[in-house]
Design a protein around this nucleic acid. Sequence first.
DNA 1: AAAAGCCCCTGGACGC
DNA 2: TGCGTCCAGGGGCTTT
Length: 280
Amino acid sequence: MEGAAIAGVTLNRADLRFPFDRDFASRLHGQRIHRLSRRAKYIVAETESGLGLAMHLGMTGRFTILNQPGNGAAPHTPGEFYYSYEADPRHDHVVFAMSHGGTIRYNDVRRFGYMTLFELASMGKHPLFQTLGVEPLSEDLTPAYIALRAKGKTQPLKTFLLDQRIVAGLGNIYVCEALFRAGLPPGAESGSLSIGKKGAAAAERLCASIEGVLEDALRAGGSSLRDYRHADGGSGSFQESFDVYGREGETCNRDCGSVIERKVQQGRSTFYCPKCQRKI
DNA sequence: AAAAGCCCCTGGACGC
DNA sequence: TGCGTCCAGGGGCTTT
């Protein structure tokens, strides 16, 4: 979509998680998309005129790119998977008509996603972005950074890692998986990461595990649970490589003889191996 | 300051 | 077939 202009925006309702900005559609009308980028869990469309469109998918948000008007998308190249998109009047909330004749649909069953316009020039000062922590795949994520931010915190590691102000973009799946790979208990005090040799070693493992999990997941095209899909209708396969997520009651992949358990932290499920993730 | 709990919303899975 | 309960890739707000 980079290089294409927005020929029209149709809003099929007045809000998603939040009401759309006033003049949302008209401000985007005719804007050429200069580039698409990402910060934390936000997809950002940057227009040539300096307008930014931040898009968060929430839990069930999904973009589908259709290269022809109507229901079906023609393959980009011969032999490519042909994706037929069935219109969903109940949950197709936003439709972008693009200058080259294609359309982009935003579908979101639970409407926890949202979109908002902002000025690219002052992105760093925008409330959505201002407090975000480091990108997990950047060189900013280091054991020293982890130790610094964890220092003195009594909150559980799981909570610490889900906090977007610390590391931006980690979600429930990848936090669970990273903690497993690092051999760290989800309930351990975060502050321990900044104490002593064991803490330093743990921070080191955690850092490497976060990177490793995300890289593996990216290679696999992400995790496709339920109807989670790519913009071309394809799906990821990282769910087949989960060590702990969604594996309650199953045997640990480390052959430690234990079974994966589930507990609730912050109202979300944490999956872990009680034996492999015993202490820092 | 930190943690627990509830809320937003819809739908699928499962038990009775 | 229907109804109730629990659960879900996120995260904000209020209460303790």
